[in-house]
Amino acid sequence: MTRKSATFIGFLAVLLWALLALFTVASNPVPALQLNAVSFAIGGVIGLFWIAKNNAWHELRGVSPLVYAFGTVGIFGYHFLYFSSLRLAPPAEAGLINYLWPLLIVLFSGLLPGERLRPLHILGAVLALVGALLVVARGTSFTGEAALGYLLALGAAFTWASYSVISRRIGHVTTASVTVFCLLAAALSFVTHLAFEQTAWPDSMSGWGAIIALGLGPAGGAFYLWDMGMKKGDIQLLGTASYAAPLLSTLALILAGMTEPRLTLLLSAGLIMLGAGLAAYQSRQTG
């Protein structure tokens, strides 16, 4: 797999994550740990089919328990924090804080061996961040009972950025290992759900559809795409290009009738695309 194709595959995960907030809101009132358990179970089944099709069972034996623990905690922890933040705080505002993770990936990646953070990477990340802020900034309030939700969203941002960058350090580990991450995270989510939450299921077909879609896409299938992108692709370009997610997420909410269009949307889109373009140009110049 070439660096360019791996980067493209990683960006497909970003496109799926554009639907994460929409499906999470639509799955209400399912609590966070229960939502984790169902989504990860679906994601794990996807991996089992992929492994069976490619007869890749032997690849799992060479993965250390430490890597399995790392992947499980990363996937479980991020989504628990993210789902919880959307339940406690207004989704748009919580999403704003969560989408600091692409900027953190770009900055953290400069610490990796063989990687170097260059001026246009930083400028592109800053411009894209400003664009992401404009998407959801109107009417934002970071006080009151939603404060815990905002704190959890910040924790989610650091968790996913750290998980993504460390994944690059273990680039030799097969992507098939993500299947085990999902299944173990599903089991952990199920146990903790029984201990700390009251079970609640959607009361509509759209709610059930949202849960299934989460497992097939942004909270399941996307893990495999992102893993390939982080291990084989351009990590800095992916980190900056990920700023398309808040814009696309907002568009998805508009099309679903969950939010109204804003005049700042075009300006935000321009800044996000400019930021990603600068990072792409820098990567081409130095790749």
Rank of each mutant, 00 (worst) to 15 (best):
G155Q: 13
T179Y: 05
L188A: 10
T199Y: 01
K232V: 02
W226Y: 06
G207R: 06
R168F: 08
M205R: 14
L216Q: 05
S167Y: 01
S167Q: 13
C182L: 13
I212M: 00
A156W: 06
A156P: 15
K231V: 02
T174Q: 13
V191Y: 08
T192Y: 09
S189E: 06
H193E: 15
F181I: 01
L184E: 11
R168V: 09
E145A: 10
L225H: 12
G209E: 11
A219Y: 01
G220K: 09
W160E: 13
H172T: 09
S167D: 07
Q198T: 10
G207S: 11
L183M: 06
S206I: 15
W201T: 03
A156Y: 15
G217M: 15
S189V: 02
G215I: 00
A176D: 11
M205F: 12
A210M: 15
A161Y: 05
A185S: 14
G215P: 02
W160C: 02
F196A: 11
W226A: 13
E197V: 01
E197H: 00
G229D: 10
Q198Y: 01
Y224C: 09
A200Q: 13
I170T: 13
V165Y: 01
R169G: 04
A147C: 03
A213T: 02
P218I: 01
A187T: 10
I211S: 00
H172N: 15
A213M: 14
D203T: 09
G233N: 03
K231A: 08
F190S: 12
A187H: 00
E145V: 03
S167T: 09
W201C: 04
A186L: 05
I170C: 09
S162M: 14
G221E: 15
